[in-house]
């Protein structure tokens, strides 16, 4: 059974049909990259999987571990293991990062029927992860994304990814706006997330991310459909030739 199966997925945003029959299967242990021209539906795809309000599925199905998730609430999908790293993380003023992570980790534990982690154990774990991402402890006391730089926001998404331990990570242009150092830190974080029972779907415009996080498969999304799939070499080809030769 595949971790994620997207079949014949059609979706509208604000009355406009964006996804027009996406087919994609992701197995546990795999890393997939989705590339494609602007406006091809890449972000829409990740938002539809996460269940963002305003994105309407008109046809097809999305299954996680064999179960359709289309009727599930956003938080239920999250509890089932779907994680979306946002392209533009929003601020929640006054709610500290630590507080937010605790609420999040506790909610996921409760959904699994687990006891919540003790405050001390939780803090210790979060501090360790923050250390791996070169974030100092002060960062954890600041409001969620409040006044963060672009790089800090992206690193914060990865901090959440590592703290929440989902089975499927959707990374929506996590590399955009990062300098080389930050890109390395973020990539290290994603690589440490990877395990046999987990998978990553990265949306990116740039081949350079794939130098740091090696994809097993690269897909080209264009006009709301996946028009080409290949291995890592496809990304290099795209880097050299652009998308024109595929869409003509």
């Amino acid at each position: 059974m595949s971790l994620l199966e997207i079949s014949n997925l059609h979706a509208d945003v604000a009355g406009t049909n964006i996804l027009k029959g996406v087919e994609l299967t992701i197995n546990a242990g795999e890393v997939h990259a989705i590339m494609g021209p602007n406006g091809s539906g890449k972000s829409t795809l990740s938002n539809v999987v996460a269940g963002r309000p305003g994105y309407t599925v008109t046809k097809g199905d999305v299954r996680l571990n064999g179960q359709s998730i289309l009727d599930m609430e956003v938080e239920e999908r999250a509890q089932a293991g779907v994680f979306l790293a946002f392209q533009y993380p929003v601020e929640i003023p006054g709610v500290s990062n630590m507080e937010f992570l605790k609420a999040s980790v506790d909610s996921l534990a409760a959904a699994r029927g687990d006891e919540p982690l003790s405050a001390a154990a939780f803090m210790k774990r979060i501090r360790e992860i923050a250390g791996e991402l070169s974030l100092d402890t002060d960062f954890l006391k600041r409001g969620v994304n409040e006044g963060f730089s672009g790089g800090e926001k992206k690193r914060n998404e990865i901090l959440q990814l590592l703290a929440l331990e989902p089975s499927l990570a959707l990374l929506d242009e996590t590399d955009s706006g990062l300098d080389i150092d930050a890109l390395q830190v973020v990539s290290r974080g994603v690589n440490s997330f990877l395990r046999e029972d987990r998978a990553v779907l990265m949306i990116t415009h740039y081949q350079r991310l794939l130098d740091y996080i090696k994809p097993d498969f690269v897909h080209v999304l264009s006009g709301g459909q996946i028009i080409r799939s290949g291995d890592a070499s496809l990304a290099l080809e795209l880097e050299a030739k652009g998308y024109g030769w595929l869409t003509q």
Partner: peptide, 20 residues
């Protein structure tokens, strides 16, 4: 949406945002 995507239900999310 951010809160829900992190597994927190709407009511808890609103309470958290308000308390912030």
């Amino acid at each position: 949406f951010l809160c829900q995507q992190r597994g927190i239900d709407t009511e808890k999310a609103v309470a958290m945002i308000v308390s912030g």
